[in-house]
Amino acid sequence: MNGGDTILDVVHLSMRFGGIVAVKDLSFSARRGGITALIGPNGAGKTTVFNCITGFYKPTTGMMRLGHAGGREFLLERLFDFRIAKLARVARTFQNIRLFSGMTVLENLLVAQHNPLMSASGYTLLGLVGFPGYLHAERAAIDLARYWLDRIGLIERADDAAGNLPYGDQRRLEIARAMCADPVLLCLDEPAAGLNAQESGALNDFLQFIRGEHKVSILLIEHDMSVVMEISDHVIVLDYGEKIADGSPRAIRDDPKVIAAYLGVADERTAEAIMEADQ
């Protein structure tokens, strides 16, 4: 199971909150360099899985193993706080955008590059006196930020407060910020939420670009089936905290259990979305 081409292995993951079981004995793996989608009706436990992976929650039981291309392995349930981002190099975005809204767009991207700057600044001291190594690192950080701003078309707004950007721009900026943290695994929580058809098309291209050019594996929670079906290589369907299906988008689409899970909640819009994706 854990070959060199698996980036994340989740094994028997369960998360209980008191009497509520949010995630129940979930096992799946995500392929390195792939886009894996986690879908399911509302309340299925998708975000809880994300919260376990990024260290927000300590899972009740289970193991989450993340492997770098170089062969290093991390057990995410044992890493605390900022170490998941720093050592295991997992980055995430949120369903409700969490930018540093009072800081500028550029600063948002620079905060994400904290760690390379931290070591270059000799833990602040050298940075304060303008040590050349630090200035060089700072310039490199700005170049990287500029590169991503160029990608998401926000270069003109680099010095505006992030909170003043339109909604769609904030979504893209959040993804760019996560990319500046130099992750191997990027976890996106509903990146297409609130985007119109054209914007979500652009998002598809952007995610494909991240995966193709930067070799970053993506784990995605999404309700927008046009995004899921078009870009993901592998889909995992959750319902009431349990995995009910796991396979290629094509296989998932025809799986009667999945259709039942969606139609069972009488969510017509979702059903329509599945139909649309079929055509």
Binding site: T54, F82, A85, A91, R98, F100, V111, A112
Partner: peptide
């Protein structure tokens, strides 16, 4: 502004 988010970006 957001301590949790900063930690998620690798800030100690």
């Amino acid at each position: 502004q957001d301590r949790t988010m900063a930690a998620l970006l690798g800030v100690d």
